[in-house]
Computed example of a mutant assay.
Amino acid sequence: MTDSAEKNRKSLTTSEITAVAHLYRGEVYRSTIWRTRLDTTTNWAVVTLGVALSISFASPDASPIPLVLVGVLIVFFLMQEARRYRYFNVWRARCRWMETHFYAPMLDDGDLHLEENWQKTLANDYLNPRYHVPMMTAIGRRIRRNYLWILMIQSLAYAGKLAVHPTPVQSLDQAFQRADVGPLPGEIVVGIGLTYVFTWIGIAIWSRNDDNRRAQLRKTDSSMG
């Protein structure tokens, strides 16, 4: 096809439309599969936290250390889920791109508006596949969607354990003593815990601001991601 013919082309053949429809179905299927994998890692995080809660609150003399150690597993699951989200976001973005530039115009006025070259953006994404969001943005999004609540429950459970078991805490010094982990004094353990929580909260806030900034900068260019 010559350059002039390509510029003047404003329609797709029936076979090409059918191929795009099948392509869309395939992308929806892939996004669904990866969305299920996101749910799996979230479920693992919830289950491990539930196990830690059961162990720590099994008796007044039970140690609060499981609530500390489960934080390592939660971070591991968060990293896994963020990685999976980056893959999921590729398929989701392609589906959304076809919905907004192929199906919506076709349903609205029967014109695919190929002159806007949206199909070239989609073709380039297939020719040069890449992640649409960086890892930190993916982590922040997953924290905002699910893991912020998991981290809050973990933190509140740990604080509650120190406050009520084996007897109601009488002073801040006593709470720090209960937080001792081997040679580490309770002050350091609590300080690490606060740093742990506020770090994830900070990443969540940063990713929200970054998403807002990206949305404001996005005009007619690819909205994938």
Rank of each mutant, 00 (worst) to 15 (best):
K219E: 01
V197R: 03
L73C: 06
N212R: 15
A93T: 10
S223G: 14
P66V: 00
G50C: 09
A215L: 08
T220A: 12
K10Q: 15
N146E: 14
D61G: 07
D61Q: 11
D210P: 00
P64R: 02
M1Y: 14
G50N: 14
F77Q: 10
F88Y: 13
F77P: 09
I201L: 15
A175Q: 09
L12V: 09
A82W: 12
T100H: 12
L184Y: 10
R213M: 00
Y158T: 05
T18E: 14
A52G: 09
L156H: 03
R9H: 04
I205N: 10
Y24R: 01
R37S: 00
L156Y: 04
N8F: 08
E81F: 00
T220D: 15
R130H: 12
D3E: 13
V20T: 03
V46T: 06
A157E: 01
G26C: 05
P105M: 06
K120L: 15
N117C: 05
R218C: 13
Y131W: 11
F176P: 03
L78V: 08
P166S: 10
S155C: 11
R92W: 07
T121E: 14
A45K: 02
T195N: 07
E81L: 01
E115P: 03
S15P: 02
T2R: 06
Q154L: 04
T220I: 11
L53A: 07
A58S: 13
V46L: 08
M136F: 07
V70A: 02
G110S: 03
T36W: 03
I55R: 07
Y158V: 00
H132Q: 13
D61F: 12
N124I: 12
Y147A: 03
I192V: 12
A5V: 01
Y196N: 09
T167N: 13
R218F: 12
K219N: 05
P185T: 08
A45E: 12
Q154G: 00
S56H: 08
D211C: 09
V51I: 14
L172C: 05
F176S: 06
V28K: 04
L49T: 04
I33Y: 12
G186D: 09
E81T: 03
T137H: 14
